[in-house]
Design a binder for these strands. Structure first.
Length: 280
DNA sequence: CTACCATCCTGGTTGC
DNA sequence: TGCAACCAGGATGGTA
């Protein structure tokens, strides 16, 4: 589920209850996530203070003053729930990991599909996979059209697939790849290597724009994504193409009966949505 | 090295 | 209404 804006939303919700706070104890109720939670996870995390919370792509990294800590990925259906009041935490199906903080706050990792990941990292984490090979942060200053163009230059895959590749650019998933391509007016089946420099520039602007707007909206809630307080994001109401097959393109005034509106195709098993008139 | 595919898992929606 | 098939925001490891 969660792409960069959803993960960023979760990170921001996590900050007030985790940053600078001491983890008193951790309870793991199910270890068999996408990658099994190691047996020494609880021991390594408990009694330590989190002094740094970082988002990198779709990952959240929580570090202590030694620069080590743990890494969280929400997979497709992962959520973080926070209980700050005194009322007792309610045991819900798929609540796999519970962090109890020094002040009594509870932080819960909930993940029905168990595609999520939670694992220990050492101070060298940035130099190890997946971070060592991950593409740039799309919202960083250094992410430029030229940089993206160089990444795409040698890729013999459709541009849509290239954008989903975390080693090309970090954090973009299916929704925002579709939306960014729409804004940049690039057809999803175009070969990545065929993207020209000025198109790459436009694509960078579009990616930044759509991600920023989505973060401002608290992400997109299709099914699972929730902010840490349980409320929904609302960027799904701002989609131009995603999940809008047969609906009119928001910006072209052509006849819906002639164009058929937004089209859906499948690329590498994933739906792509696009406007056949605007995107070429 | 690159690209494609199946797979991990549950739950909600769709169609018969 | 009931049930089966299909679909979903992601990452990875194997294979070609």
């Amino acid at each position: 589920m969660p792409e960069l804006p959803e993960v960023e939303t979760v990170l921001r919700g996590l900050e007030p209850v985790m940053l600078g706070c001491l983890i008193q104890d951790v309870r793991v109720r199910r270890r068999d996530l996408r990658v099994a939670i190691s047996d020494d996870f609880e021991k390594n995390i408990s009694g330590k203070r989190i002094v740094q919370l970082i988002r990198r792509g779709k990952y959240i990294i929580a570090l202590n003053d030694q620069g080590a800590g743990f890494c969280l990925h929400l997979g497709m259906s992962g959520r973080i729930k926070i209980f700050t009041d005194k009322k007792s935490y309610e045991d819900v199906l798929h609540d796999h990991v519970l962090f109890r903080m020094e002040n009594g706050d509870q932080i819960v990792f909930h993940d029905p599909r168990r595609f999520g990941m939670l694992y220990l990292v050492d101070a060298n984490w940035e130099k190890e996979k997946p971070f060592s090979v991950m593409g740039e942060e799309p919202l960083s200053e250094t992410f430029s059209g030229l940089a993206l163009w160089h990444k795409l230059e040698s890729k013999k895959v459709p541009i849509k697939n290239a954008l989903l590749d975390q080693n090309v650019v970090a954090g973009v998933g299916n929704i925002y790849a579709c939306e960014a391509l729409y804004q940049a007016e690039i057809h999803p089946t175009r070969l990545a290597s065929s993207i020209r420099k000025r198109e790459a520039e436009l694509l960078v602007k579009s990616i930044r724009n759509v991600l920023t707007n989505a973060i401002d909206a608290g992400g997109s809630t299709l099914r699972d994504h929730r902010k840490t307080d349980g409320s929904m994001g609302y960027f799904q109401y701002g989609f131009s193409v995603y999940d809008r097959e047969g609906k009119p393109c928001p910006s072209c005034d052509c006849d819906l009966k002639k164009t058929g509106g937004i089209q859906r195709i499948v690329q590498s098993g994933r739906s792509s949505f696009f406007c056949p008139v605007k995107q070429t």
